[in-house]
């Protein structure tokens, strides 16, 4: 029965991981920027929800909409007025730039809000339901459901809307997208905005589950990176599979081997993926 509880815990965590990583995967797949500030954006989402909860008593599952909006605008502006200027440069330059942004955002957050641990703790935070010895906390279940819903919403957005088609076109062939009359620079900015917005929503919900600090994003950037890669870049459901997979493996690993080995397992899987199937679980092999 313990194993069943672990599976449930792993899947619930994995759904949130998927949401966390899908923004990074989207940005990477479309603009070819590996956004090392992704975790910092998640952190900003967590603080947005925390302050709205603390100051205005706004429920975290309501304020995640605000979190999306704030981070969308922030992401849009970063891409439009900073990253777009070096988008044609080698990947090393954009890596360096987003690394710098990560340090900047983290340190500004630390100066503004100190390094104190915070947590968004609504009254129902520790409630849940039990079935036999299985326990499911409501907040984890809600975070899971919202995450999965948003992954599917993103899929529909990319498939059905005009903006979504522009994003897909740009991700597949930039010159051809230009020839269709698509504004590539703006499409990049919107893509970054959506990726950042989703990171913000993930942060809002993570802040209910774990303590919030200005440095919480560092490990989350790494995990998003791993999920995006093992799921398969350039696929919409890759991060979903990668996130659930990582959630399961991490939960199993820390139960059976101890929490300190969880990261060893995570990055071990990354190395194994890169060796066995470099395009990720759902990624297509180049023909």
């Amino acid at each position: 029965m313990f194993e069943l509880q672990i599976i449930i815990n792993g899947l619930l965590l994995g759904g949130l991981y998927a949401l966390m990583a899908i923004g990074m995967s989207l940005i990477w797949g479309v603009t070819n920027v590996v956004n090392l500030a992704h975790g910092a954006l998640i952190m900003l989402g967590a603080y947005t929800t925390f302050w709205l909860f603390k100051l205005l008593h706004l429920d975290p599952f309501i304020s995640l909409a605000a979190s999306f909006a704030v981070l969308f605008v922030f992401g849009f502006l970063i891409q439009k007025y900073i990253i777009n200027f070096v988008i044609r440069a080698k990947m090393f330059i954009t890596l360096l730039l987003t690394f710098g942004l990560d340090i900047l955002i983290t340190n500004v957050a630390q100066t503004a809000w100190t390094s104190n641990f915070r947590q968004t703790s609504p009254s129902y935070a520790s409630n849940g339901f039990s079935y036999g010895i299985i326990t499911v906390p409501y907040v984890r279940l809600a975070a899971f459901a919202i995450s999965i819903a948003l992954v599917f919403a993103l899929y529909l957005f990319l498939k059905k809307t005009k903006t979504g088609q522009a994003i897909r076109a740009v991700s597949q062939d930039i010159d051809a997208a230009r020839l269709m009359g698509i504004n590539v620079a703006n499409t990049f900015a919107v893509t970054f905005g959506i990726g950042a917005g989703l990171a913000g929503v993930a942060g809002s919900m993570i802040g209910v589950l774990i303590p919030i600090t200005p440095h919480m994003g560092e490990i989350l950037t790494l995990k998003s990176f791993v999920i995006a890669l093992i799921g398969g870049l350039g696929t919409i459901f890759g991060p979903l599979v990668g996130g659930l997979f990582l959630g399961l493996v991490e939960t199993f690993g820390s139960f059976h081997l101890g929490a300190k080995y969880a990261d060893v397992i995570v990055f071990g899987i990354l190395v194994a993926t890169l060796i066995i199937k470099p395009t990720g679980i759902l990624g297509k092999n180049n023909e």
């Binding site: 088609q165 062939d173 010159d175 051809a176 009359g181």
Partner: peptide
């Protein structure tokens, strides 16, 4: 040609009318 390889033929052609 520079078609969008992962889109259907109809999606490709429709993008021609993007504006």
């Amino acid at each position: 040609r520079h078609l969008f390889p992962n889109m259907t033929v109809e999606e490709n052609i429709s993008l021609g009318a993007f504006l």
